[in-house]
Design a protein around this nucleic acid. Structure first.
Lengths: 344, 344
DNA sequence: CCTCGGATGTGTGACGTTACACATCCGTCG
DNA sequence: CGACGGATGTGTAACGTCACACATCCGAGG
């Protein structure tokens, strides 16, 4: 490996001068600069990023720590964040934690966090205490579901509002027995599933409709397969339903597939709504009505909060929760509504 | 930041002893070890990964450099690679290059490559010369389409064989005018599209069917949207077709959607085949017949080749191309074939 | 002719860790 | 009783870069 000192010797100057040239600092005569650059070229010198980092530099990388990278939602988030971060001279790298305690702690280990200038994390099992214990000495934004007390700003979508919107829409379109795919019967931690279940219940309450717990299917991971299995289970147990609200678009895709398999038409027999507004939702058959949780706004907000913590931006934001506004994207998997008067 | 020397002072030993304790090296008395660990605890010391890396350590990270992270194929690849790499003590981080020259060069810059112990890259625009110029001083495996001469092993799927299989299947199922979505009219660089187009032509040739170039639709990026637009274009120009072979499953999803929009039944009016066997293909309506390019085998092979280069594994593999075997996964988007006798 | 100051370049460490060679201690064996 | 060797611990230097304070040179101004 060619070092700065090698270049220095070749060019007949000191390592510091090489450093100054390579980093475009002023105070080097044009002629000297030229000589150094030639030496760099001749020797094929490339600065060592690790040494720079040790010396206190930046890597330009933002780490995105998510449970999965092959789920529509996180994959699209990575892409969106990448686009926004690029404009600020950063690039995004995505890491999969698996949503397990071990995986999340591993990803947050100092050894791995050190490679990043900043962290964006969607914690699944870790709580505020774990996060504190991890001593993340980097700008960090937490993502997703639970409001987590701690030193870091938290960007969360409007889970309750979004799911209320989705459920209201189904009810106004005539649905009375709405399956909740991936919901929780008992509201637990304030995790994503619980929050979205709250919206489901709230809309029912507002409309004066009783919720039948048999309609709520708890699933493992909100994947296409989970959505598929949930509908088959409902069908096997002969639970009657005229709509399904899937907690993620991925699950909704499984739901659509399963409904086709059991011979029920969407939206005539069963209406379906998803959540996330993944790119895929526009191409399913039928096209999926879904909740757009403010994906673009969230990506921008995340980067803004990160930058603010580096001091590049404005005042550092205090810990606390940010909420992007959710809206409904109506497509073909739900029926037309007569009463178009908006309720919220 | 607490340093090793701080711990050393606290415990009344030398920094080296702390290093030995922290890294579990032998030759430290149990009592001393205990004292050091207590000091570590008391001070909240965490080893500095950057310094370790500089000193010659490993980061445990494998960089996956791909054009997109939100395309089914690459997203699933990242997940698969992650699973395999984990078993060997590595973790995978995915980076998006955008498939542009600038993006690919940026991702390969020493500053960014330095963070990884090894690289897996799917080059889109970079050629062998660029790769050589990038001086990747890490184990590296190239991925995907073009056979690239150079120092690195190259894992490629059997593009020609897979697309031959797909096209043959359509022909045997009665298709005579097969649209090639994303294909190339003129075979160019030996890139993915060209190779898959070759298989398409070969199967036609074998069956004695002439290819009508009007059926070949060139697209930008093999996304769902591209597949969708391609079919609409064909329809607008009143090109007659009874099947479509989409070069990726993502594009195929767009194709399915577009066919539904123009009112053509799949598989009765038009049969559809994709390529990649993305997880989504099992959930589309109808389920997508597609080419399984040997995804799992490729993931394992990639990690094996990486390990071999680190010396952890067996003999380092020479540069050259590896091919995983492709097979067809027949689902619902194609018709049943009477003549089940396999031809290949 | 001396001094002052801008322009240009250099030497010294320090970032935090670890490989390596060496020092020290103490019990054991001839 | 001296030598030997295992067990334990330490000092030095190096990984490659850069901030900082300082040195040197040269022309201008008094």
């Amino acid at each position: 490996m060619v070092r700065m000192s090698d270049v220095a010797r070749e060019a007949g100057v000191s390592p510091m001068t090489v450093s100054n040239v390579v980093n475009g600092r002023p105070g080097v005569k044009a002629e000297t600069r030229q000589r150094v650059l030639e030496a760099v070229e001749r020797l094929g010198y490339r600065p060592n990023a690790t040494a720079r980092l040790l010396r206190g530099g930046r890597s330009g990388a933002i780490g995105l720590l998510v449970p999965d990278v092959d789920t529509g939602y996180y994959a699209h988030l990575a892409a969106r964040l990448g686009a926004v971060a690029e404009a600020h001279g950063y690039h995004v790298v995505a890491e999969r934690t698996g949503g397990t305690r071990e995986g999340e702690l591993g990803a947050l280990s100092p050894a791995r966090v050190a490679a990043y200038d900043a962290i964006v994390m969607s914690p699944v099992v870790l709580d505020a205490g774990d996060l504190r214990a991890a001593r993340i000495e980097r700008p960090c934004v937490l993502l997703g579901e639970r409001p987590l007390p701690g030193p870091f700003p938290h960007v969360m979508m409007d889970n309750i509002g979004g799911s209320t919107l989705a459920t209201e829409h189904l009810i106004r379109a005539g649905a009375r027995r709405i399956a909740l795919v991936g919901g929780r019967r008992a509201v637990a931690f304030g995790d994503m599933a619980s929050l979205r279940s709250v919206g489901y219940r709230r809309a029912h309450g507002d409309a004066g409709i009783e919720v039948d717990d048999d309609l709520i299917v708890e699933v493992g991971s909100y994947s296409m397969r989970d959505g598929y299995d949930a509908v088959l289970a409902l069908h096997a147990e002969q639970v009657d339903f005229d709509a399904a609200f899937a907690l993620t678009d991925a699950a909704a895709m499984g739901v659509l597939r399963a409904l086709a398999d059991i011979g029920r038409d969407v939206p005539q027999d069963v209406q379906v709504v998803g959540f996330d507004n993944d790119a895929e939702a526009e191409f399913t058959i039928p096209r999926l009505t879904t909740v757009e949780p403010g994906n673009d706004a969230m990506a921008r907000e995340i980067v803004r909060l990160l930058l603010a913590q580096t001091g590049d931006g404005a005042r550092p934001p205090g810990p606390g929760d940010r909420v992007a506004e959710a809206r409904l994207v109506v497509r073909e998997s739900t029926r037309r509504i007569r009463d178009v008067r908006s309720r919220r």
